[in-house]
Amino acid sequence: MTILVTGTAGFIGSHVVQRLLDRGDRVVGLDSLNDYYDVALKQARLARFIDHPRYTHVHADLADRGAIEDVFTRHSPRRVVNLAAQAGVRYAAENPHIYVASNVTGFLHVLEGCRQHGVEHLVYASTSSVYGANTAMPFTEHEAAEHPLTLYAATKKANEQMAHAYAHLYGIPCTGLRFFTVYGPWGRPDMALFLFTRAILADEPIRVFNHGRHKRSFTYVDDIVEGVIRTLDRIPGKDPAWRGEAPDPASSGVAPYRLYNIGNEQPVELLRYIEVLEQCLGRKARMEMLPLQPGDVPDTEADISDLIADVGYSPMVPVEEGVARFVAWYRDYYQP
């Protein structure tokens, strides 16, 4: 089938495209190649598959309504995986408008394309950041998440609500995936593992927020991709158990709509994460201990029982293995 994937020059998007091509799908990939971080890295990700006979690349911005309409008209995708977004929790303090343009207006253009062209399933990226001020662990999709602490999280929460509205009004099956702290080869240079690796190899200090005491459900990229593929192949319907009470936040009741957490069930303390990296690099880090940053949450822990029950999968790669794979890729790519 033909699948439209947005954000194909991105970290997760490039991995998803490779998996879809490997299993025989036709992929139309869209990316704007913006300069939020190193464009050369984005181009190198694309170079791995851009000449594949079943891949078609479109250079466009999600916020460009005409360009997105043209993509849907020309290629008539059967399914859509929307991974394009302005990423980064802290960058929003400097450039808030780009988050709304890409993550809200751009997502509206994707929803409209799905509506006008009879797409059978839209899978889109959300984030664990939507849990915001929630403190009950582990985070579950069945509890309301109404208090995001950053603009980035607010835009992704808006995506979930927009998708539900379109699923209800137009019958478009929509599945949202709340990703938990993704890491691995070809990762983003603004993320902790990348920053730490570069600094340690250069014998520079690393900034360790919350004194390294917070925990995260660090999730290896291959585990995320497996979750994306399996949920893409499971088209949601209305919740048959709904009897007119307040709808379940995870499954609605009035719309073909679903939310899933995708994260490692075993959260890891940041200091342990750094220790694993030190072992892989064979060097010790010089740590600058700092307080928790505004907008950061002390801990994240994913409840993935629904993902396991519905698609038969849970993330499996431990940080010891995942960090080692990242370090091997980093040394090969950058030749430090």
Score class of each variant (00 low, 15 high):
105 T>V: 14
105 T>W: 05
208 V>F: 10
88 G>K: 09
90 R>A: 12
225 V>E: 04
194 F>N: 08
195 L>S: 11
197 T>P: 07
121 H>Y: 05
109 H>M: 04
123 V>P: 00
207 R>P: 08
86 Q>E: 09
232 L>E: 09
169 L>I: 01
86 Q>K: 10
116 Q>S: 03
168 H>V: 08
192 A>P: 03
125 A>M: 08
190 D>N: 15
147 H>W: 07
89 V>L: 10
153 A>M: 08
135 T>I: 11
193 L>G: 06
144 A>W: 14
105 T>C: 11
110 V>F: 03
189 P>R: 10
160 E>S: 07
173 P>C: 06
136 A>L: 12
105 T>S: 08
91 Y>L: 07
221 V>T: 15
117 H>A: 01
216 R>L: 13
181 T>Y: 15
186 W>T: 01
157 K>Y: 12
113 G>S: 08
147 H>F: 10
118 G>K: 04
218 F>D: 00
206 I>S: 06
115 R>S: 03
134 N>L: 14
125 A>L: 12
86 Q>M: 10
224 I>G: 02
210 N>Q: 09
163 A>I: 09
106 G>L: 00
149 L>E: 04
90 R>H: 14
222 D>M: 10
195 L>K: 14
179 F>G: 04
183 Y>N: 03
198 R>N: 11
100 V>I: 15
217 S>P: 15
96 P>F: 11
89 V>I: 14
86 Q>A: 07
234 R>E: 11
123 V>I: 09
215 K>I: 10
116 Q>M: 03
139 F>C: 07
118 G>F: 04
